[in-house]
């Protein structure tokens, strides 16, 4: 598994823990908001989860326009 695939795998695990089994079947390019129906508060919770899990700090503006696991993986990859 490449580091990118590993990141996506861990992100899927985190999303599943927070949003339930529907997140387990997400593809890397799926829109999280559309597929999971998450709202802005849940998005902030996910941001906190990401910061905790990966030991990084992610300013909100880095997430501007990021709606997919692949996009999140890219943001996290830049900050590790």
């Amino acid at each position: 598994m490449t580091s990118g695939e590993d990141l996506i795998h861990r992100l899927t695990e985190l999303a599943t823990a927070r949003f339930g089994p529907a997140a387990a079947s997400l593809a890397a390019g799926d829109d999280l908001f559309d597929k999971l129906g998450i709202d802005s508060m849940q998005a902030l919770d996910l941001l906190t989860d990401l910061e905790e899990a990966f030991g990084v700090e992610i300013p909100d503006y880095e997430l501007q326009g990021v709606t997919t696991l692949a996009g999140l993986a890219e943001v996290i990859g830049r900050r590790r």
Partner: peptide
């Protein structure tokens, strides 16, 4: 939309 608290 459901994202009023996200940056814009």
């Amino acid at each position: 939309s459901v994202r009023p608290y996200l940056p814009r």
